[in-house]
Design a binder for these strands. Structure first.
Lengths: 217, 217, 217, 217
DNA sequence: CATGAATGAGCCTTCATTCAT
DNA sequence: CATGAATGAAGGCTCATTCAT
């Protein structure tokens, strides 16, 4: 009976779960409320009752997915005295873990990808989140590596270069795994990728720092 | 008769043109044969008559788009005696031009992105093209920069790091332009981005080369 | 307890108020219980709770509207010694006031109009009311004007002719105001219309009286 | 086979027929395209294919109903030398015939009534038709009866009084037949009603003429 | 060779109603 | 006494496809 009541009452929750999965699979327009309701095991009209609209359901689903992502992302602050290089490695590992790790983070990435292809008003949610949760910590690390005189522009360029490498692994998986079947793509390969990206990025940032130094003098 | 055949060819061709643009904009499922036919100025039934199916039209459109892209990508081989650094810069500039440049190349990128999200059998076409047209020249350059002893694995990792930076600019445009409105994103900004990516990548590759050296010894 | 009962009564009453307005505006089928409940500020299920049904609510609303109309229509009996002509003018003015005057009388007219188009069993309520409240006084006046020998048939014909002129102003307002934008249609124009209708009707009744006289002789 | 082809090809026509009947019965909002298509024996999507929209179907149906009405309304011009009184009787008989006569004219009247209760943009069609086909001939007759000095306002008032009596018979049929069951309402009663309305109206117009004369002097 | 006409499936939404609390 | 939650039915519309010509 406890099971029954819990099963009965969280219709809203179940719709959100189903919506996140469905929107991740097919994007906004290609997802159907019917499929979402079927997946959630509720009546078709429930979507309109609880969320007014397919649009509003989408927004609610995005916010929910982001919220879940944030709670999981504890972002354990590194101990004092850790070098910027080590923090960069940690940051990259975190990114890869959240992008490639099993479970719903992948849903969020797919939703982002759909938004990138077909931006709706919801994309602003991601921009805000990206700025606060990803860009801010990255900026601290990269600024330290580039030196205090590095312009915001230069820092942004390097952050993009770092994130791009993480992002590609998640986004182009379909092609990469076809081109290089030998490079495994499961969770166990994350450290290997993190190492390469860190090494490559440290070299890249160092090169940029040198270039800036020459430019100034 | 010449008139008739040219007219016939025109219809098919016009549908293909329209389909490429439409599929690039909206992906496969979100594109409607109606919109394609309206854009092409032909009857709704023409798609089914000439291509049997929406699916078959999609595949034909992809092949056509790829073919056009290949013919345009003459890939003028660089003169002998050019340093690997210069060739890398050229390669990156080419990539950015084809990804960000106005016109149909962007169409192809969008189609690729859609395929990455929702792979169909058509994705193999892109894999083959990526290997032949993009990866092969990149491999030559990076191998030279990494040194002859660098393993294929190491080379692939670096190629990915380079391409990732190009790809992000094209794919995450929607977010980047919202996060950094100051960084222009038109064709004129390509040289600036190419310079940064080249510098960053050269530094990264150098770091990887050093690491390999240490590892070996 | 007094508080509770007044609260209860309030809910039912508020639903009735809202229902009358809504049914007047949109008729039975085009009115939604949702809109009624929203307007009344009560829960959606309240309609079914208090009135079992949309149908039953409709009948209750009609009865309520009629009852309110009756209490308002005190029909102040004219002083003795007033001529039939003056009483006719008064009668016509009354009709126009109740048909065109602002406020709920108009609601009742609209409900009647809807019933005329789509008669339900509720129409009998209106027939009874029309006979008692409208037709009876009119009959007295017209009979006096037509003369005592006038047949009920002749009297009914003339009553219809008089009422028709009043009714048209209320019912065809949408067309008339478009055809003759200059003739104002607010409450202030009632006397002007009443004068014309009275004059026209007196002439018409006189003509009928003459005709009856010729027929008899 | 001739039957089959004629049956097959006039889908548009059959939809229009069904739409006129359905809209006459239920008005615009309460009519469903499904019911119309069922009645017409065609697919649900046929409405959208042939008329784009429920709205556009409505307009097309109105225009068709009006056109049919016009062709039937041959309006045989009266011979010269006919008195205005006789022409008025003819006019009123025509109106009653078209309002009460069997067949589709009733459909048109019901659509008009629905429009009067819930005006849409389509009401302008009726206004135009009313002006041209009904008001213009009536104005000629009434002006002659009222005398050349009668103001347009006075003429309009009398026209309304005449038309109101015709209109009531068609519109309030549901109540009248309940109040006076003895007065038959079929086509055979038209002459009797026409006679009364003519007599009443001639008397009314005469009274107005006298009043105008007094006013002037 | 090509097309106008027609169709069945499916989508999003609204509505009146019911039920458990 | 009253309500939030949930539902089945239905409605307008779009889409890819087929068919007769």
């Amino acid at each position: 009976m406890a099971d029954d009541s819990s099963q009965t009452h969280d219709t809203r929750e179940r719709i959100l779960d189903a919506a996140i999965e469905e929107f991740a699979l097919n994007g906004f327009k290609n997802s159907t409320t019917r499929a979402i309701c079927r997946r959630a095991g509720v009546n078709n009209a429930a979507v309109n009752y609880h969320f007014r609209d397919k649009q509003h359901l989408y927004h609610s689903a995005l916010e929910e997915a982001l919220a879940r992502h944030m709670t999981r992302w504890v972002g354990e602050p590194l101990h004092e005295g850790v070098t910027a290089e080590e923090r960069l490695f940690h940051f990259i590992s975190d990114q890869l873990t959240h992008m490639l790790g099993a479970g719903s983070p992948d849903d969020l990435m797919r939703i982002v990808s759909h938004e990138l292809l077909d931006p709706t008003s919801a994309i602003d949610l991601f921009v805000a989140e990206a700025v606060n949760v990803v860009h801010a910590p990255a900026r601290a690390i990269v600024q330290e590596l580039l030196g205090p005189e590095a312009s915001p522009q230069a820092v942004s360029d390097c952050i993009r270069s770092v994130l791009a490498q993480c992002f590609l692994l998640s986004h182009a998986r379909a092609i990469i795994s076809r081109m290089e079947p030998e490079s495994a793509f499961d969770e166990r390969s994350i450290p290997r990728h993190a190492e390469h990206i860190t090494r490559f990025s440290l070299g890249g940032i160092a090169a940029c720092r040198e270039s800036l130094a020459h430019q100034d003098s």
